[in-house]
């Protein structure tokens, strides 16, 4: 096992939907997708975004795209047109999530 940031094993993109942001994560291999499907739960994401996301986190799976999609409610200070925060549209929530560290089995990290 090695402790690695998601940067090593996935790519991500995020955007806004009203006052919610969505964070899509794509695993770099099918095996890593299975690993992330187990480990990267809505609860883990909610805890990681606890200072930004003030609502529920919902997860959707897209195994065909080796991807998970997270909806982070109440994360944009009121939404793109209303808030004064810099990242009003959650543009960098995806890069934020890639900072998360997970213990990944060595055989998945070739």
């Amino acid at each position: 096992m090695a402790k690695v940031q998601l940067f090593e094993i996935a790519v991500a993109r995020s955007g806004d939907k009203g006052d919610a942001s969505n964070v899509g994560v794509m695993a770099k291999t099918p095996e890593l997708y299975q690993f992330l499907e187990q480990q990267l739960t809505a609860a883990v994401v909610k805890d990681f975004f606890r200072e930004i996301c003030h609502g529920a986190v919902t997860r959707y799976e897209l195994p065909n795209l080796q991807s998970l999609n997270f909806i982070l409610e109440n994360s944009l200070g009121g939404g793109g047109t209303e808030t004064l925060i810099t990242d009003a549209q959650g543009k960098v929530h995806g890069l934020g999530l890639l900072h998360l560290e997970l213990e990944v089995p060595d055989d998945l990290l070739s």
């Binding site: 790519v11 991500a12 993109r13 995020s14 955007g15 806004d16 939907k17 969505n22 899509g24 994560v25 794509m26 770099k28 959707y60 897209l62 795209l65 080796q66 991807s67 999609n69 909806i71």
Partner: peptide, 16 residues
């Protein structure tokens, strides 16, 4: 596949 999938995930809600 990675660059295009990234965009598929952009502003996505329930994928089904």
């Amino acid at each position: 596949v990675e660059t295009v999938t990234s965009q598929i995930l952009y502003e996505l809600g329930d994928p089904k």
